[in-house]
Design a binder for these strands. Structure first.
Length: 138
DNA sequence: CGGGTGACGTAGG
DNA sequence: CCCTACGCCACCC
């Protein structure tokens, strides 16, 4: 199956909408859930394309890098700061490095479910209230 | 049509 | 943990 760019955007938005509060995931994981594991950059591209009015509908701030770092997004932009503010408001701990880099502990706030678990969210059969799903490095 | 770029990721030093 | 190099692909020049 080949995803069109528009459909890829829609898939990305749909997945981002599923991210629970106080949790974060990575661009690459969203790309993987969307069926395109190598299109991690385009996930960010899709979020960049995101209109301001859809902000409250799509928790874009819960998407960070696979290393738990919030992308600088350029020195003149305040996107990273707004993202940090939104995450902190939800209760996510964001640490600031000496160089001003913003990072989140994925072991504590990471949310990396598989496609099957996503389907499980749409149809809650197993009521497992697990926290960090799929903490790879453990 | 070649080259640079980016809200990325992984591997290696 | 830091930085560098490379792969990736849509988009822009």
């Amino acid at each position: 199956m080949s995803l069109d760019s528009a459909e890829f955007h829609a898939a990305v938005y749909d997945i981002v909408r599923l991210i629970p509060a106080c949790r974060v995931t990575s661009y690459g994981h969203i790309a993987k859930l969307a069926g395109m594991p190598n299109h991690s950059r385009h996930v960010g591209q899709a979020l960049k394309f995101l209109p301001p009015n859809t902000n409250p509908l799509i928790p874009w701030h819960r998407v960070i890098g696979a290393s738990g770092a919030i992308s600088s997004r350029g020195p003149g932009t305040d996107g990273a700061q707004r993202q940090r503010d939104a995450l902190v408001a939800e209760g996510v701990e964001v640490t600031t490095g000496r160089t001003g880099d913003l990072r989140v502990d994925l072991h504590q706030f990471g949310w990396f479910p598989s496609a099957a678990q996503i389907r499980d969210q749409w149809q809650p059969h197993a009521t497992d209230g697990q926290g960090a799903v799929g903490t790879e490095s453990e």
